[in-house]
């Protein structure tokens, strides 16, 4: 790939987006020459996120499910393939809202997998910064579900 350091080749981004559409990939990550490109589908078409220099937000290697930590933020990731629900039932309020505080054992979502309604615990302490998946959509193993702003001690 010939490309100047720290600039983004948008043809590449476009190609990656197209690749995602065609392949049905939910998430795509690519890193080269100090540029890290991360694409993630949030329901409809892929949303493009360019987090900038790789060092700033690199996740620790090998951590694929449960939590992935990066600086002040921690992501709650899906421990399984299934359908993501933010509430126990369609009429009920979401288990957590943006801005809400959670502890390690707070149930933040339900994932229906193999006909079992699974409670997903935060497994971390913090404030919900962002809900990354729409209610009722299919999620993959390791897919980030929530981004938390850390409030507790590092674990």
């Amino acid at each position: 790939m010939e490309e100047k350091k720290n600039t983004v080749d948008f043809r590449l981004v476009r190609r990656a987006v197209k690749l995602m559409e065609e392949s049905g990939l939910a998430e795509f990550e690519w890193e080269s020459g100090g540029i890290r490109l991360r694409l993630k589908k949030t329901g409809g078409s892929p949303a493009v996120a360019l987090p900038g220099p790789a060092a700033e937000e690199a996740a620790p290697p090998g951590e694929t499910a449960g939590r992935s930590s990066s600086g002040r933020f921690v992501e709650i990731t899906s421990p399984m393939v299934g359908t993501f629900y933010r509430s126990r039932s369609p009429d009920a309020p979401p288990l957590v809202e943006v801005g809400g505080r959670v502890g390690p054992r707070t149930v933040v979502a339900i994932i229906e997998a193999m006909k079992v309604m699974n409670e997903i615990e935060a497994d971390a302490e913090g404030e919900v910064e962002e809900v990354l998946v729409a209610d009722g959509t299919a999620v993959e193993y390791g897919q980030p579900l929530f981004r938390l702003r850390k409030t507790g001690a590092e674990t």
Binding site: P79, M80, M114, N118, E119, E121
Partner: peptide, 23 residues
């Protein structure tokens, strides 16, 4: 997925909830 049928009608049902996390 979850219904018990008797004489053409619904006589019962089941719901499994839990925690499959961690493998």
């Amino acid at each position: 997925p979850n219904d018990f049928i008797v004489a053409g009608g619904k006589a019962g049902g089941m719901l499994i909830e839990g925690s499959l996390a961690g493998g």
